[in-house]
């Protein structure tokens, strides 16, 4: 889990976590997720506009987390991967509904909204994106 945060720290990120809202630079054409405030390629010449990222991509790299961080103990072992989305932008997320032994680089996956972690029994529940093998 991340460090326990007050609610604004969570709802501020709903557009990215629930809908994969990123952005793209009209000047250089590169897509960013999470959205960037300044295009690192063009800087002041960049022209950023909103872009909802594609919900499909392929596995760029993966690992099986067996020693879990606080808040993820119930899910261990779980697959964590870097997914390359159609736009070429990469994200880090869990791969769920998969046999860890069947993971391979290049596997096609699609995004789903899932529970990510809980801040204890009485705290908030964090939701966000995970990916599953493409059906």
């Amino acid at each position: 889990m991340t460090h326990r945060k007050a609610l604004p720290g969570i709802w501020r990120r709903f557009p990215e976590r629930y809908r994969l809202e990123g952005n793209k630079c009209k000047n250089c054409g590169e897509h960013f997720f999470p959205p960037r405030i300044i295009c690192p390629n063009c800087r002041r010449d960049g022209k950023l506009e909103g872009h909802e990222m594609s919900k499909e991509g392929e596995i760029y790299s993966y690992t099986i987390i067996r020693s879990a961080p606080v808040g993820f103990e119930d899910q261990t072992p779980y697959v964590l991967a870097i997914i390359e989305l159609k736009e070429g932008t990469k994200v880090t997320a869990q791969i769920t509904d998969v046999d860890p032994e069947e993971m391979e680089i290049g596997m096609e996956v699609e995004e789903v909204l899932r529970k990510i972690s809980e801040d204890g029994k009485k705290g908030k529940i964090n939701y966000g994106y995970k990916f599953v093998p493409k059906s």
Partner: peptide, 24 residues
């Protein structure tokens, strides 16, 4: 914190991603 650790990444996990890609 917001885009790796929030989603369940650990430090060994991040280097494992590097290792797996290097092996590939």
């Amino acid at each position: 914190q917001e885009w790796e650790v929030f989603n369940g990444a650990t430090f060994p996990g991040l280097y494992a991603l590097i290792a797996r890609r290097h092996m590939h």
